[in-house]
Amino acid sequence: MKTFNLCVLLSLAVAVHCVPILQDSQEDEQFAESYLKNLQSLYGPGMEPVESGSGSDTNPDACDVTLVLDAVATLRGEMLFFKDSFIWRTHPLRDTPEQSLITAYWPDAPTDIDAAYESRESDSVLLFKGQRVWAFSGYDLVSGYPKPISSFGLPESVKKIDAALHDEESRKTLFFVSNEYYSYDEAKKTMDQGFPKRVDETFSGLTGKVTAAFQYRGYAYIYSGSHMFEYHLGTKTFFRELQNKYFLPCTEY
């Protein structure tokens, strides 16, 4: 008999509550209904149950050494790791990553995204898929989104973004497209002149396709496949090569 998880989103600052439910079990269905009503009495109405997956074979595994993430971003002190329809959240105060469906947090969000980054200026997280971008403040879609990625000033020839990297100090966001990258000025809302540039000319040793990127404590972490490269953002100096599990730990040991 298969199982799925009943998940209820309380807020972006609170973990998703999940309980295993047996399919075709009237007793467990009654328990699920009672569980949801109890949470609604504590946190208020309007919450809906979400099936977080029908089995481990559909959920990406953080312990998979060949795992290639779709995107990585930060949000209000947390780290977000995207893969297919799922998202992991990690926080410095929690040892275990929390996995859930992307749409459990953002019902209007796309899945299988291409890139993501946090905009501190607008207090939002931006998700990219194909030639469109979605912006979410909290778990609400920002008015006017989704927008075409050309609204950033990218040429119409760019059909998708492979990764996005926001630098808090310079207030610039780098958009990686194939073996090149563009630089977007968040303050001026314009693309910087002199771009695109080749990725390997700026980030030494990075010869493979960029698949995800984010900034943490002044360092850039750029993913290429199942590996991650650490650079100083100011000088672009390469420090070391790491595996995905450096920030997204396997918890099955």
Score class of each variant (00 low, 15 high):
221 Y>Q: 05
183 S>P: 12
145 Y>C: 15
148 P>I: 00
138 G>R: 09
200 D>C: 15
177 V>H: 08
153 G>K: 04
211 T>C: 08
148 P>S: 06
181 Y>P: 11
222 I>W: 06
173 T>N: 10
145 Y>G: 11
146 P>S: 06
204 S>K: 15
154 L>P: 00
202 T>A: 11
188 K>G: 03
197 K>M: 12
183 S>Q: 14
195 F>R: 07
185 D>Y: 05
194 G>M: 14
149 I>N: 01
136 F>H: 01
214 F>K: 07
214 F>A: 03
174 L>A: 08
138 G>W: 08
182 Y>V: 13
147 K>I: 14
210 V>Q: 03
154 L>T: 01
159 K>Q: 06
172 K>G: 03
215 Q>D: 06
202 T>N: 11
180 E>P: 02
169 E>T: 03
149 I>G: 00
209 K>D: 13
218 G>L: 14
203 F>A: 04
171 R>E: 13
159 K>S: 08
139 Y>I: 15
172 K>H: 11
137 S>V: 13
143 S>F: 09
199 V>Q: 15
155 P>A: 06
200 D>Y: 14
153 G>L: 05
197 K>G: 03
154 L>M: 05
146 P>T: 02
152 F>N: 00
166 H>Y: 09
194 G>T: 11
155 P>Y: 04
142 V>E: 10
162 D>H: 06
173 T>C: 09
173 T>V: 11
168 E>R: 14
154 L>K: 00
152 F>I: 01
173 T>G: 08
173 T>W: 07
155 P>F: 01
170 S>A: 04
140 D>V: 11
204 S>E: 14
191 M>C: 04
224 S>R: 08
192 D>A: 01
178 S>V: 09
151 S>V: 03
222 I>E: 03
160 K>C: 05
163 A>N: 05
172 K>C: 09
181 Y>T: 13
207 T>Y: 15
211 T>W: 07
158 V>H: 01
187 A>K: 15
201 E>C: 15
172 K>M: 09
188 K>V: 03
210 V>E: 01
219 Y>L: 14
220 A>K: 07
183 S>A: 14
143 S>L: 11
159 K>M: 03
197 K>P: 08
162 D>L: 02
175 F>H: 10
178 S>N: 11
137 S>H: 13
176 F>E: 10
218 G>E: 14
202 T>S: 13
144 G>A: 08
204 S>I: 14
151 S>C: 07
159 K>F: 04
154 L>R: 00
167 D>V: 02
182 Y>C: 10
174 L>C: 12
143 S>P: 04
216 Y>R: 15
197 K>N: 13
161 I>W: 03
156 E>N: 06
147 K>Q: 11
202 T>V: 14
141 L>I: 03
182 Y>H: 15
175 F>M: 12
164 A>R: 06
219 Y>R: 14
202 T>W: 02
157 S>C: 06
191 M>S: 05
181 Y>R: 12
194 G>V: 13
